[in-house]
């Protein structure tokens, strides 16, 4: 290849990659959940429940939180304001969070509040663009539900390897919870 042509090929290739990069910047900004959500999520987690990362087993904590919620619901009829575990209480009802788009697909949750507590989180949409993200988001959303029920807030730690699922799930949840205030 002659030097001039090699130079042209090099410049052309660089230009093509640069166009791709430029096009990708828009996609990047769209796909990354807003940076404030990530920051608040992680910082509150750091100051709050550090023990959640070392949850013994999902099933154990799930049953524990289930018994806890059933306990509060039975006592809620007599005294609804006797909450001692969390500072925030929510209005009873079912609230649907916003749709959060990521590069692996949309995420959306619905939160069920009973007796001022988060009693259930229902996944309406999760990352499913391909088999791998389907697999990841399925297990991650199950773990997230357990964590959220235990923490009674959207301030739970990230699940490594499922950052998109975690962040978009929590963002949608945060939105739903804000409606419940």
């Amino acid at each position: 290849m002659r030097a001039k042509s090699a130079f042209a090929a090099g410049v052309g290739s660089a230009a093509i990659v640069a166009i791709g990069w430029q096009a990708g910047l828009g996609a990047l900004a769209q796909q990354l959940p807003t940076s404030t959500a990530i920051a608040s999520g992680t910082t509150t987690n750091a100051s709050g429940t550090t023990g959640t990362t070392a949850t013994p087993s999902p099933s154990a904590s799930a049953s524990a939180s289930a018994s806890a919620s059933s306990g509060t619901s039975s006592s809620s009829s007599s005294s609804s304001s006797s909450s001692t575990t969390t500072t925030t209480t929510y209005k009873d009802g079912t609230y649907t969070g916003s749709v959060v788009a990521t590069r692996y697909g949309n995420s959306q949750v619905q939160v069920v509040i009973k007796g001022g507590k988060i009693s259930d989180v229902i996944v309406l949409q999760r990352q499913q663009v391909d088999t791998k993200s389907n697999q990841i988001s399925a297990s991650a959303t199950a773990t997230l539900k357990t964590k959220v029920l235990a923490a009674q807030s959207a301030s739970v730690s990230n699940i490594s390897g499922a950052t998109y699922t975690t962040q978009s799930y929590l963002q949608s949840l945060q939105n739903a919870l804000s409606q419940a205030k």
Binding site: A14, V17, I19, G20, W21, A23, G24, A27, R103
Partner: peptide, 13 residues
């Protein structure tokens, strides 16, 4: 270059 550009355009970075 096109292969890399398509990867980046999809937010591959």
């Amino acid at each position: 270059a096109i292969v890399l550009a398509l990867f980046l355009a999809d937010g591959g970075a």
